[in-house]
C-alpha cells in the first residue's frame, strides 16, 4: 500500500501549478525515501526533476516501490478542487490502476475523494551528471520572475551573463533591447531578499524565454531561486519546497548556428 499525507494541500497545489505548463504526463516514482519525478517537456528541451522526501510528509507509507503514470492536466484539475488548508492524502494499492486523492477540511466536516486513472508510460530516465558550476546565483524568486516577464517583451531569448560585478539579464529583438543588472547585495535585513553570486569563472548563456517563464510558475514555492550555470551545459533553476524537497528545472542553452 502507498499512502502519503500532507497537513496542507497548498504545497501540492503549488507543485502542480509549477509543472503543468511543461508536463502533460509524468511518472511518479514512490519509494521509502519519498516521491520523485523526472520528466522532459514534449520538445525535449527542458527537464523537470521533483523530489519530495518521505520525512517531509505528515504520514508516509510505501510498502513496495511504485511507478505511477499520472496525467498532470487531470491531477492539476483535482488539486484545484482542494482548499489550501485541506489535508491531502494520496492513496494507492499495490499494482494500482488508480490513485485516490482525499481532501479533508480542517474542521473534518468535509471529506472529498477523487479517483484518477493511472496511465502506462514508457520509462525514460536521463542520467544527470554531478557538475561543479562556474556561477551560482541565488536571488529573490519574485525578482527573477519579474525579469523574465519584462525581458520577454523584447525577444524570444534572455542572455544571462554572470561576472564578479553581478549578473546581467538581457534581451534583444526587432523593437529594441533591454538589460537588467543585479549587483550582489552587501547587507540585507532579510535573507530572502539577498542576491548572492558564487563565481568561479564568468559565464554568458542564452535561454528561451518560453521555458524560463514556465519555470517561474514555481515562484510561490520559495522566496529564493538558485540559478546554476556553466558554459555549454544546461541551466539549473532550483526552488526549495519548504522542508520537504525541491524542484529543479534544467534548460539546454541556445547556441549560435
Amino acid at each position: 500500500m502507498f499512502e502519503a499525507r500532507l497537513a496542507q494541500s497548498a504545497i501540492l497545489k503549488k507543485v502542480l501549478e509549477a509543472v503543468k505548463d511543461l508536463l502533460s504526463e509524468a511518472t511518479f516514482e514512490c519509494s521509502d525515501s519519498g516521491i520523485m519525478v523526472q520528466a522532459m517537456d514534449n520538445a525535449h528541451v527542458s527537464l523537470v526533476s521533483l523530489n519530495l522526501r518521505s520525512d517531509g510528509f505528515d504520514k508516509f507509507r510505501c510498502d513496495r516501490n511504485l511507478s505511477m503514470g499520472m496525467n498532470i492536466t487531470t491531477m492539476t484539475k483535482i488539486l484545484r478542487c482542494a482548499s489550501s488548508e485541506d489535508t491531502v492524502t494520496l492513496r494507492a494499492w499495490d499494482n494500482p490502476d488508480n490513485i485516490i486523492f482525499i481532501f479533508e477540511s480542517p474542521s473534518k466536516e468535509k471529506l472529498a475523494e477523487y479517483e484518477m486513472k493511472l496511465i502506462n508510460m514508457d520509462q525514460e530516465h536521463l542520467g544527470i551528471p554531478e557538475t561543479m558550476y562556474s556561477c551560482v546565483v541565488k536571488m529573490p524568486s519574485a525578482e527573477f520572475a519579474r525579469i523574465c516577464k519584462d525581458l520577454s517583451q523584447f525577444g524570444e531569448a534572455i542572455t544571462i551573463a554572470c561576472s564578479k560585478e553581478g549578473v546581467k539579464f538581457s534581451a534583444a529583438g526587432d523593437y529594441g533591447n533591454a538589460n537588467i543588472k543585479l549587483a550582489q547585495t552587501a547587507e540585507v535585513d532579510k535573507e530572502e531578499e539577498a542576491v548572492c553570486i558564487d563565481m568561479q569563472e564568468p559565464v554568458k548563456l542564452t535561454f528561451a524565454c518560453r521555458y524560463l517563464n514556465s519555470f517561474v510558475k514555481a515562484t510561490p514555492l520559495c522566496a529564493q531561486v538558485k540559478l546554476s550555470m556553466s558554459a555549454d551545459v544546461p541551466l539549473v533553476c532550483e526552488y526549495s519546497i519548504g522542508e520537504i524537497g525541491h524542484i529543479r528545472y534544467y534548460l539546454a542553452p541556445k547556441i549560435d548556428d
Binding site: 528541451v45 527537464l47 536521463l126 542520467g127 542564452t206 528561451a208 534544467y250 539546454a252 541556445k254 547556441i255
Partner: peptide, 13 residues
C-alpha cells in the same frame, strides 16, 4: 540561434 535537446547533454540511463 538554435535550441539543443536536453537529451544531448544527459544520456539515457
Amino acid at each position: 540561434m538554435s535550441q539543443r535537446s536536453i537529451t544531448s547533454f544527459f544520456g539515457k540511463k
